[in-house]
Design a protein around this nucleic acid. Structure first.
Lengths: 232, 232
DNA sequence: CGCTATGTTGATCCATATCAATAAGTGTGG
DNA sequence: CCACACTTATTGATATGGATCAACATAGCG
């Protein structure tokens, strides 16, 4: 592993509080690897051999059943994924693939569990991280069950606008087909949802998003911190 | 709090490994309360003042948005709910109400957080619990996004059959309207889904469930441990 | 520059929601 | 213990959100 990547990892909430010794034990067995786009990293059902850290690029978490596939989340730098499976030593519930060229750190799960047993600060950091993950998925479930696809799209756009400092114009962070799957609809349906939101102050042209009337869009979207706030 | 309830709590995975002192600190400020059915315990958005333990009865976790409501899970004895909000000192994401007469223990969140900071065994137990919760919600999201309502119903029945030791005949654990909401459909649609599954070996009469042809039902349901297994 | 994957649009179909009416429980007070 | 009221469940008719299928356009990319 490149020595100049270590500080970035160390500064993650998950690793920042642990002892120097523990951190050393973790990174000793770790490797950094660069993957091309569209590479399958893990497959649901596999044993959790590694905890992954996305250093650059992005990784899609998705799942399949009975020939269908759905996108569950996108992991962006710098954060980890499949912590729960690693800690529980249980099979992955989601598959993962790179969406673009990405640099990842692979931490052997056994090392993570060993350090977890020894280092109390790390154990507490894991709690915070897992609680965050849990709340994110709960929000997701609420979003899916309480909103129509058009409402989900409208709120998605408002969420990303907020994430971009309230910008009225920005770029979609992923392909539309992936966005459609993430929002729980087909690509065709997303196309139509986009058109349906034009009268409500939203224009999407290619990857370019323009909020032309925030008031109307919010009136329709009714964003709610208990579903849409990504900070708590 | 009644002294004879303490051993039951103590034996929960979440509390079994912690020191005697810490446990004492926790239960010292706790109270046990009995609630009638349909009592609202907490409301989403409220600060997380207590961690709850269901001792008897059952509690429904649900959420609202824009006049719609959906049931997210049912908590049965003996387990806790809203651990994540308690630990993070963040607002509840879900509301909770008793579905029947229920005995609950209320542990002041501040006490839980204090003990969490002091007791390392407890901190680790919280990790295991949260990882479990997280994986359950992920399975739920997969269930919702990958399956039709009929498939969800079929798998729900098979799951509860397994939970009852593989019984072919058992009682529904909740009202149909609640089940419909939990499965992400309307009560009317549940009624029709039940009828649609009759030719596939499932009969539901009132609360009585009878699996008349497990092979056919499984052929349709295609249960999958990465969605339906409630033990891992 | 042309191939291939992605995105759009239209036509149609299907799953599920909604609305309405009835039936069946369930609990309460007389 | 029954009658009434009220909630829950079922059934039918209809509407609609969203999926599917098919054709075409477009954009990346080698």
């Amino acid at each position: 592993m490149r020595p100049d990547d270590i500080p970035a990892i160390r500064s993650l909430d998950l690793f920042s509080d642990m002892s120097e010794d523990s951190f050393h034990d973790l990174v000793r067995g770790a490797y950094m690897q660069t993957f091309p786009p569209q590479v399958d990293l893990i497959s649901e059902g596999d044993p959790a051999d590694f905890l992954y850290v996305v250093v650059s690029g992005s990784v899609e978490l998705y799942a399949r059943w009975n020939g269908r596939e759905t996108s569950l989340s996108t992991v962006r730098p710098i954060s980890t994924f499949i912590l729960a499976a690693t800690i529980k030593d249980a099979p992955y519930l989601m598959s993962a693939r790179t969406t673009e060229k990405s640099r990842l750190i692979l931490l052997p799960s056994q090392d993570v569990r060993d350090v977890f047993e020894r280092d109390n600060a790390f154990a507490r950091a894991v709690v915070t991280e897992l609680a965050q993950c849990y709340r994110t998925v709960v929000k997701n479930a609420k979003n899916l069950k309480l909103r129509t696809s058009i409402e989900r799209l409208a709120n998605y756009v408002l969420r990303w606008s907020a994430r971009n400092g309230g910008a009225t114009e920005f770029e979609l962070a992923m392909e539309k087909r992936r966005l459609a799957s993430f929002l729980g609809m087909t690509p065709e349906n997303l196309s139509r949802a986009i058109k349906a939101l034009r009268p409500y102050g939203l224009e999407i042209d290619g990857a370019r998003v323009r909020i032309t009337n925030r008031t109307d869009l919010e009136l329709l979207a009714k964003p709610n911190p208990l579903i849409d706030d990504f900070t708590t």
